[in-house]
Design a protein around this nucleic acid. Structure first.
Length: 801
RNA sequence: GCCGGGAUGGCGGAAUUGGUAGACGCACACGACUCAAAAUCGUGUAUCCUCUGGGUGUGAGGGUUCGAGUCCCUCUCCCGGCACCA
């Protein structure tokens, strides 16, 4: 028998599979469909490390398993190729980003190619391809048409280093997620998408998703719905009123001051009448100059300034209370103003203590008549609240809201999506600005608006992208009046192309529509989506938003794009740190494939531990899966025709293995599936022979994990068709339970012996049998016991004392 | 601070969802083969003791149960997310 030569075998079959197009997906089929999707990569210049393919290997195993199980499988791959790194590389080297990304794509493709993944490359997509981004622009036009895309001049997050505006989702602790710079607030003209209009649907539909609980929670918190009331405080001796949002109207009688955010529109007007006008101006200016990061650092020590001479009337008891300006109140949330109840809110409590504002307790813990805590933030019973005293918090909320003429409102933490970037390497926003007609959308027939060549990729920093410098591109005619007009020079964010790409795979070459209606109905939704957890509050929210919008305009037929989602746990370096250039702990999959083979790499990555948990790379351990494969290879030398008693034992174990492997693949418990197959191989080695039928079926269940080696052995056994197009074997429950079953015998909960019973004697065990066992007699010498517990097929426990 | 997840041998991890804890793999030790080494094969490997037996043991403490890694309460530590959201 020949040696297991992984290099020869893997090359041979990768070429054969490509030549015969065995992974080509049929558009029409009588089979049920299974759409399995990987989060497509950004093709970075540094290539892959061993952590990247982990998710791809898993999706590959699933797709092979479902194909063999009789499904029409869609398993595509593509490139999310717009983005800053390519643009920054262009800045440095003057290479057009298209050139460098195309090169990177080739490297990526080669690297994942040698792992033996079964993608249907006929459906490859690239977000920077004009035929692709034509439809990204088309979706923008539709959003604009429906009033969901608008221009805004509100202050937005500005990264001074990347020289572009950013969405809320692009920040990390008040810093730019990309470069780590402190973010400034800058008023700028921006295109914004009204994702908030979808907040309720995005939130409510989370419950119907088969996603990890953690991600669902993350999204719920990100959307952050809170129900409360809007209450008006009239200004004493004035016309104005301050509207506040609160979730705790029940504490209204304990409100001892009102706070406006420094950006609140009433600040200028009210401070004009104030005695300390200059002080206020100074405070407001200082707050405006603080970055979010600075505000965050200073958040422990709250600051503010009183509008001296202005009082607000508490509508619940007509008390006149002071008005403050403080930057602990956020302008963007609620009404930008709050009522402060220091006795029942920690932030107000801190502030009130610092500025010696009265603290009035109005809630006592339920069941108590008094509140002994300095600051009690939970619901309870109202005290010191006049006619409302004695009510529970929840009753009081209704009654007080009604009494004060407040209205019930809902607020969200989710902000509208700042959608324009002042950078080059992105989809041009298909809008034309006409002096006469104002904002005019580019007509659909003129799509795509091509991204032009520029001489310099340098961001201008002025709020315009480098595109603004290309006169012949910027200057155009207005599609409405035909007069002189200019193109929008902002581009779309990185996240645009990935918000709908899963639809393009369904119908990648369609020039007439985003996706064919029939094909969409057949393939949607994605049955299994595999990718990293870092996309929880960006890609996965944006894509759900666009999908719901596309549903509303009739392009798609389901509410949610991704029915089931699974996380890939990271693979860290051998040192436990994140794998990357920074720590010099990168392991290149090419090297592992060269030394041990793709099949070994695949097996090893899946064997490392639970799929969704992060794990440390450990080159020493890779020898285990390699040895396993070599044993399987050698097993072909002990294949026999005879069916003796030994074969029956193997058959029984084989059916148990078959059952477990199938179940484990479905639930992505690849590590235990592999261990089960190892147990099987150990057993066969011990017995020393295996029938051809069982060996071949075993190769089939191993095939999704080790596609090359199993294909080779399959053909060596005389098969002509690919193992990957064969039918997944069916297990026989009857065969699994043919062996003797062992049951532990405990005395007082401690294992003292073991009893074997034949399954076919109805599992009958008599107390006499057990008590006569010598190892049991030792513990129950006189045969007396309090209780005899027998859980059928599981355990016996004799309670003596 | 809030939300979510976790803690099991030297290491990665398993445990039929309340029923023999440590499967499988790595590493290590000894043995076989070999002039030798590697590879391969075999045996062993939670820990302690007075060792053909027995005690202890799943982050700590308590509880429920005939029986707890698994359920309940309290606490410690680690990872991820959010963070003045009124």
């Amino acid at each position: 028998m020949s040696e297991y030569d992984h290099k020869k075998i893997e090359k041979k079959w990768q070429e054969a599979w490509a030549k015969n197009e065995i992974y080509k997906t049929a558009d029409k089929s009588s089979k049920p469909k299974y759409y399995i999707l990987d989060m497509f990569p950004y093709p970075s210049g540094s290539g892959l490390h061993v952590g990247h393919p982990k998710g791809y290997i898993a999706s590959d195993i699933l797709s092979r398993f479902y194909r063999m199980s009789g499904f029409n499988v869609l398993h595509p791959m593509g490139w999310d190729a717009f983005g800053l790194p390519a643009e920054n590389y262009a800045l440095k080297t003057k290479t057009h980003p298209k050139v460098s990304t195309d090169k990177n794509v080739q490297v990526f493709k080669k690297q994942i190619g040698i792992i033996g993944l079964d993608y249907d490359w006929g459906r490859e997509i690239n977000t920077t391809d004009p035929e692709y981004y034509k439809w990204t622009q088309w979706i923008f036009l539709k959003l604009f048409e429906k009033g969901l895309a608008y221009e805004s001049n509100e202050p937005i997050n500005w990264c001074p280093s990347c020289k572009t505006g950013l969405a809320n989702e692009d920040l990390e602790n008040g810093k730019c997620e990309r470069c780590g710079s402190d973010i400034e607030k800058k008023p700028m003209r921006q295109w914004v998408l009204k994702i908030r209009e979808y907040a309720d649907r995005l939130l409510n539909d989370i419950d119907q998703l088969d996603w990890p609980e953690s991600i669902k929670e993350l999204q719920k918190n990100w959307i952050g719905r809170s129900e409360g009331a809007q209450i008006s405080f009239k200004i004493k001796d004035g016309q104005d009123k301050i509207d506040v949002f609160t979730t705790r109207v029940d504490t209204l009688l304990g409100a001892t001051y009102v706070v406006l955010s420094p950006e609140h529109p009433l600040v200028a007007k009210l401070s004009a009448q104030a005695k300390n006008k200059n002080e206020i101006e100074k405070y407001v200016r200082a707050a405006a100059n603080k970055t979010d990061a600075e505000r965050l650092i200073e958040n422990k020590d709250k600051t503010g300034v009183k509008i001296d001479g202005v009082l607000a009337i508490n509508p619940s008891n007509d008390e006149a209370i002071p008005v403050f300006i403080a930057d602990y109140v956020l302008a963007q949330y609620g009404t930008g103003a709050v009522m402060a109840v220091p006795a029942h809110d920690l932030r107000d409590f801190d502030f009130a203590k610092k500025y010696s504002i009265p603290i009035k307790k109005v809630i006592a813990p339920a069941g108590e008549k008094q509140n002994n805590e300095e600051c009690f933030v939970e619901d309870g019973v109202l005290i010191n609240s006049g006619q409302f005293t004695g009510l529970s918090s929840s009753e009081a909320r209704k009654k007080i809201t009604k009494f004060c003429g407040g209205k019930l409102t809902t607020n969200y933490k989710l902000r509208d999506w700042v959608f324009s970037r002042q950078r080059y390497w992105g989809e041009p926003i298909p809008i034309i600005h006409c002096q006469k007609c104002g904002v005019a959308p580019v007509p659909e027939k003129d799509l795509p608006v091509l991204l032009p060549e520029v001489a310099s990729y340098e961001p201008t920093g002025t709020g315009e992208s480098p595109l603004a410098g290309i006169d012949e591109w910027v200057n155009t005619t207005c599609p409405k009046c035909g007069g002189k007009a200019k193109r929008e020079t902002n581009t779309m964010p990185q996240w645009a192309g990935s918000s709908w790409y899963y639809l393009r795979y369904i119908d990648p070459k369609n020039a007439k529509a985003l996706v064919d209606e029939k094909k969409e109905k057949y393939w949607s939704p994605v049955d299994m989506y595999i990718g990293g957890a870092e996309h929880a509050t960006r890609h996965l929210i944006y894509a759900r938003f666009w999908h719901k919008f596309l549903k509303d305009i009739g392009v798609v037929s389901y509410d949610e794009p991704f029915k089931k989602l699974q996380h890939v746990g990271l693979i860290n370096g051998e040192d436990g740190r994140k794998m990357g250039k920074r720590w010099g702990n990168v392991v290149n999959p090419d090297d592992i494939v060269a030394t041990y083979g793709a099949d070994t790499l695949r097996l090893f990555e899946m064997f490392l531990g639970p799929f969704d948990k992060s794990a440390n790379w450990n080159t020493a351990g890779i020898i285990g899966p390699r040895r396993f494969l070599e044993r399987v290879w050698k097993m072909s030398g002990v294949v026999t025709k005879e069916t003796g008693e030994e074969n029956a034992r193997i058959e029984s174990l084989y059916h148990a293995t078959l059952k477990k492997v199938g179940n484990d693949i479905r639930t992505l418990n690849f590590n235990t599936a592999i261990s089960e197959m190892m147990i099987f191989v150990n057993k066969v080695e011990e017995i020393g022979k295996i029938s051809k039928t069982i060996y071949m079926e075993f190769l089939q269940i191993l095939a999704p994990f080790a596609p090359h080696m199993t294909e080779e052995l399959w053909h060596q056994l005389g098969q002509k068709k690919s193992i990957h197009l064969s039918d997944w074997p069916k297990y026989d429950e009857k065969k699994i339970v043919s062996e003797l079953k062992k049951i532990a015998v405990q005395v007082n909960g401690r294992v003292r012996g073991e009893i074997k019973l034949e399954q076919n004697c109805d599992g009958k065990i008599t107390q006499k049998m057990v008590l006569e066992m010598p190892e049991i007699q030792k513990w129950v010498p006189d045969g007396k016991f309090k209780k005899f517990i027998y859980i059928e097929g599981k355990i016996i426990n004799i309670v003596v004392n």
